[in-house]
Design a protein around this nucleic acid. Structure first.
Lengths: 341, 341
DNA sequence: ACTTAGCACTCGTTTTTGTTGAGTGCTAAC
DNA sequence: GTTAGCACTCAACAAAAACGAGTGCTAAGT
């Protein structure tokens, strides 16, 4: 356990390092208002803190920087959630006061604000459409061999896909099919559509719909569950402003990671309630072992609808970021609750 | 005018520099198979080429690098469009052999291939929906105060938006409205929808539709022409592999530029037929004065449908890039022609 | 008249050496 | 238990030296 004085010193060092990105020396700490001890005393404590693993020394004659363990302690016990400043609050107020009907739009703009306010890279995972239920299905023919299919889900998401119409299928055929599908598939989760058709409806089809063999390929195109682009990022370039990423090689690793959507999804998915902080090695992926990821999910009717998160160096302004994500996720939850509820 | 020998030398230098990114010395040139002169002779010619502005010398005792003027001459007169290698050709074949019904998907995947094959950043401008004509309009109510509107255009593009239903508007109202709008707006270009309603249809509305005042706000939401995300990029991180961008600051400038979609659209828009090469200062924007942009547009029924382009350092593999863009744009044109035609 | 070997010279890059100063650990005094 | 003082360490910066790729010029060769 840390003494009160040690905590004071650790907090001071983390604060200092977060803002100046340079090893903190004993003198710097002792000069702070909230510290009443001489540099020498601090030095002794710092040596202890290093021994216990809270601090590290880049080299013998340098100041100390927090270890990842130190950050963890800071986040868990030392930091005081800070109030947001006026202008940031205003931005958020305005965002949610404006009329945003589209889920995607809301998410994208939230991400944008988040990255602008924090100067980190923000990432948002949109809702999994996966288990949304089909509400309505429609097909518009475009010409002899092409048509547009539209799937509306219970949450109001619209999925569209262009499909090719097989030779020998008439408009009436399509209509019949669509009617039948609508009657039978309403309420079925998207990811089970195809399965349901193949297992339960084929027979029915053969009885009610002419030419049904030709229609099969069309149905399959229609019901394919697509790999969806539900990831939104903003402020990717902010990474470039961080001193820990002045080396292009490091930037590259991160950027490439951000381009792989499944990796990002895995990295940011967050089942917990409240704000979650993952520091350095607490992240599975090696590429982000010197980064921190802070995330929070937003919830409608008790079900997680998506996640909102930030990616930055381990030297992250946790105080600010945590309150910000807390506020934003609550706002998002409320916002979507109002739309869906 | 350049002598044949000078052309040979210039070509050699550009080739060499494109592949090794380092100033080319007289010895290196003289050692090439296609050159039959001693280093001393080359040196003399090089001095001349520098005087005429085709070459530059980073400093006194370094080799020469092509000037932007030199690249221009190379592109216009010296380079021989190279055949694509087998594996690249295969990739392209496969791409267009696969069934791609979605315009967006096609474009995105083409961009992806383009960046992988070239190791530059690829950018594609999708079709302007702007003057597509409305084919069909539909509204699905989601609950008492929300609905989804779907607009299908003559080219088969589907636009969707979520709208709020004003207090006091009934389902019947909506149906009436949609029917009337469909009857009156079919064939009107998207960007003139709103205008058309306000100028020509308001009176008609008041006669045929109950509660039409309440519906007005809904119509406006419905017909708003949105700023569309028609830009696709791929391989942004490739920039980071170029030696000319080993300085983070330079990367930052470019990356930030790539995040502004209107700037990108302006930079890449290309009205010409065939492949267009813009070298360094030939680009208006200062931020890309040390970059080259090569682009080609694809065409359906004589109308440009979009542009496909590459962003890289002025030291770009023009031979490869030009043929590649040529092939891809032709393929794209043919592909879309088949779908739309 | 053109080409080329030879050589002195230039200048960025790399290596070496020297200097500085922030910061430490330890000791001894308070 | 706290703090002033001091010797010590070591990265960072700067100056100096060595290196070498490449040039321009000259003079000899064809």
């Amino acid at each position: 356990m840390l003494s009160e004085r040690q905590e004071k010193i650790l907090r001071a060092i983390v604060d200092e390092y977060i803002h100046h990105a340079e090893p903190v020396g004993s003198r710097t700490v002792s000069k702070r208002k909230d510290i009443g001890f001489s540099a020498a005393t601090i030095r002794n404590e710092m040596a202890d803190l290093e021994e216990t693993g809270f601090l590290e020394q880049p080299h013998t004659s340098a100041g100390r920087i927090p270890s990842q363990f130190g950050y963890r302690y800071y986040v868990d016990h030392l930091m005081v959630p800070r109030h947001l400043n006026r202008s940031d609050l205003m931005m958020i107020r305005e965002l949610f006061a404006s009329q945003m009907n589209e889920v995607e739009q809301t998410i994208q703009e939230t991400a944008s604000i988040l990255s602008r306010v924090t100067n980190y890279t923000s990432i948002m995972l949109g809702p999994e459409l996966y288990d949304n239920k089909l509400k309505y299905l429609q097909v518009f023919p475009l010409n002899d061999h092409m048509a547009v299919a539209i799937l509306v889900t219970d949450t109001g998401h619209v999925d569209q896909r262009r499909i090719t119409v097989p030779e020998g299928v008439s408009l009436t055929n399509i209509e019949q099919m669509v009617n039948l599908l609508n009657a039978k598939l309403a309420g079925v989760p998207l990811h089970r559509l195809k399965q349901t058709v193949h297992k339960e409806l084929l027979e029915e089809f053969s009885r009610h719909v002419e030419n049904y063999e030709y229609l099969l390929s069309m149905i399959d195109q229609l019901l394919a569950t697509e790999a969806e682009g539900r990831i939104f990022t903003s402020g990717t370039t902010n990474i470039l402003s961080q001193p820990e990423f002045k080396d292009v090689e490091k930037v590259k690793v991160l950027m490439e990671l951000l381009e792989e959507s499944d990796t990002v999804a895995r990295l940011f998915s967050n089942q917990e309630t409240g704000v979650q902080v993952r520091i350095g090695h607490e992240n599975e992926l090696e590429a982000v072992n010197n980064c921190s990821i802070v995330s929070a999910s937003f919830v409608v009717d008790g079900r997680s609808l998506g996640t909102i998160g930030l990616l930055g160096p381990t030297r992250m302004d946790y105080q600010k970021v945590v309150t910000l994500l807390d506020v934003l996720s609550r706002n998002l939850s409320r916002h979507f609750q109002r739309i869906y509820g």
